[in-house]
Every structure is written in C-alpha cells, then in structure tokens.
Design a protein around this nucleic acid. Sequence first.
DNA 1: CTATAATGGTACAGACCTGTCTCTATCAAT
DNA 2: ATTGATAGAGACAGGTCTGTACCATTATAG
Lengths: 195, 195
Amino acid sequence: MPITDKKETAKTRILRVASYLFYREGVRAVGIDRIIAESGVAKASFYRNFATKDDLVVAYLEQFYDTFMKPFDEVKARHPEEPVKQLYELIESLGARIDTPGYRGCPFANTAVEFPNPDHPTYEIVMRYHTDTRHNLALAAEQAKAAEPNTLADQLLMLFNGALITAYLDRASYSSEHFAHAAKLLIQHQLTKKA
Amino acid sequence: MPITDKKETAKTRILRVASYLFYREGVRAVGIDRIIAESGVAKASFYRNFATKDDLVVAYLEQFYDTFMKPFDEVKARHPEEPVKQLYELIESLGARIDTPGYRGCPFANTAVEFPNPDHPTYEIVMRYHTDTRHNLALAAEQAKAAEPNTLADQLLMLFNGALITAYLDRASYSSEHFAHAAKLLIQHQLTKKA
DNA sequence: CTATAATGGTACAGACCTGTCTCTATCAAT
DNA sequence: ATTGATAGAGACAGGTCTGTACCATTATAG
C-alpha cells in the first residue's frame, strides 16, 4: 500500500468533483461520464472505488453529514453550561452557511426530492441526518429549560429547513436577520412560558 | 370541434396521470413512455398535445399554481375586513394541505431542486409562485397593521416552506399544531410591536 | 531491476429516454 | 355516407446512461 499521500488519490478526486457537481446541478442531472471527465480519472478507476453510482451518492451525503453535524459539537464545546447560547450560535452558524457563496440548498432535502423511494440507498442517511438534528435540538432545548423541548425542537427544525429551502428558491426573499429573529422569538417564548 | 365532453379527452387524461406520477416520484424519474402507458394514450397523441416533455411539466406546475393560490382569494372573500383572520386561515389551510393523504411536499420546490438551471422552462413559474405568495402575505400583513409587514411576510414564507419540506422529509417530526403555533407567534409579535 | 498495484484510455453492451414517423380505427357533423 | 379531426398501436432513430472488459502506462516496494 502507498505510504505517501502527496498526490491526491483517485478516490478523493472523484468524491470532490462529484460533490461539487451533485450539489450544484443535482444528482440525476450529473452522469458518471461527466464526473470521470472532469476529475480526469479512468472509468475503471471509478468503478474500482465505487461499485455503483448510488455508492458515490451515499459517500457524497456522508461528507455533508459530518459538515452539518459539526456545529452541534462545536457549540457544545464552546459553551458547555449555556444551552441558550448554544442555540443562538447554531442559528448564527446556519445563517452563515446559507450566506456562503455557492450555497444551493440542503443536500439532504435535495437528494430526498430526487429519490423519494424509501428503498433507495440514500434514504437511510437522509433520515439519520434529520433525526440526529432534531435530537440535538431537543437536547439543547431541554437543557435550556424550555417549557416543551420537543415542541421547540420541531419548530426550530421547521424554521431551519424553511430557511435552507427559501434561500435556495429565491435569494431575494430570504434574509438571515429575519430568520435569526424568528428563531430567537420561538426560543424566548419557550423560555418564558410556564411548563 | 367537439361539442360534447362526456369522455375525458386525451390531453386531460395525460395531464392527470402525469401530475400524479410527477408529484409522487419526481419529474426526472418518470419518462414519457410510462405516462403514455398509464394514461392509455398513443405516443402521437401525446406529442400532438404537448410539444415536449418540458411543456407537460410546465402544465403540471400551472395546475398546482392555481391550487396554491386559491386559498388567498378564498380567505380574502370570506373575511374582507379581517386581515388577521385571513392570515390565521391561511395557516389552517396549509396545515390541512399537508395533512392530506398523498402529500409529497411542495411541487414548486421539488421541481426547482430537480431543475436548478434558470434557463429551464420551469424556472419562471416557480419564481412566479414564490413572489406571488410572498406578495399576498405581505399585503395581508400590511392590512393587519404589522409593524414590519415585509419582515413578517418573509418569516411566514420561510416557516410555510419549512413546514412543507419537513413534513415531506420526516412525517414524524412534523406537527400541524406546532407549525400553527409558531406562525401565530410570529404574527402576534408583529401586531403588538411598535412600528 | 523486477514485481505488484493503481491508474489512464477507450471500446462496448444493454437499457432507457425523447421525439418522429406511418398506418389504422373511431366518431361527429354535415 | 363522406369528410376531417382525433386517437390508438407500434416501429424506429439518435442520444445518453450505467456498468464491463481489455490493454497500456506509471509508480512504488522489495
């Protein structure tokens, strides 16, 4: 096996190019041939690293899973004893992600729209992303002593998903300030409410 | 030209079957051959009524456009002098739509995900749906004397889109009560706030 | 230097997709 | 009954897609 990793390996190159194209143009719209051409890789090399296109799509989502979950760990580490601050920073984090150039919506939602069949290999990771996100939100809400942590988690998740898709559909009608303001309103209402 | 319409014409049959399949399985996933087979129509008849598949997709979205815009007219007619009631009934209307069996997300958002290219023929109607919805919300917010009508419209649109996509991605984490409650909270905050 | 593993290039098979074409059958109006 | 519009059935072309096979090339390990 190779010791040096100076040159980017074929597998990582494929995954990088595929992620870029899948996210920008959609999974179904981007064919294997295009990925091979733009990553400068042989077709055989592709199929040696990914048995099927679906396997590549799952790997693409796994990457985003890590990216999307990291903020939860980060805010927990940064403010271990301040759950409300955790929630607020999660809001900032999502707003920043949306304001990033090249933003094209939520890759999990997008993939679920392209492959609605629960038998599809992508179904599992989309659900995992969603339930984990909801679980983390509920945990923070509970520690923040929200009156109804699950209600708050559901509402925040709804608003998060709404921000993600609205900013994608029509940039002009989205504002990170309006989003953050609405989210904080939902949080504050749950904190001042009697359980 | 035919006088009687007793038998469903080929065009409406195609559109009905295509709408069902496009909405359930996605536009790219459903081919012309399948639509022809399931609507019991000849291929020539199909292309006599729709020059291309894209034309059919646009017709499919036009149908949904009417469906999605109707509630705005209805609530306005029902409560012409009560804009807050209009907003509340719009919330109810959306919740009811989501709770309908066979619900599979927002057809406009779904199509935009499948065809992100602004040059695609579907782009225009998706934008039209979105801007019209936002405009109608802002109008009601203004008449309700919201402190910042455009802010409220943006936030409601975000929450509406979020409810639509969240209910699609994970039915278990969606609740029409939680949605309605969050929406009413945003409205009430804008009504009690000083301009 | 040699052996081994990873890679590039490319042709190809089989399926599916959109769209065109021809021919035949039906049906309503005159 | 004849005519003209509408519709069904299906072959076919040209392209694209996924996935396989074969062979030459490069680079690294021993």
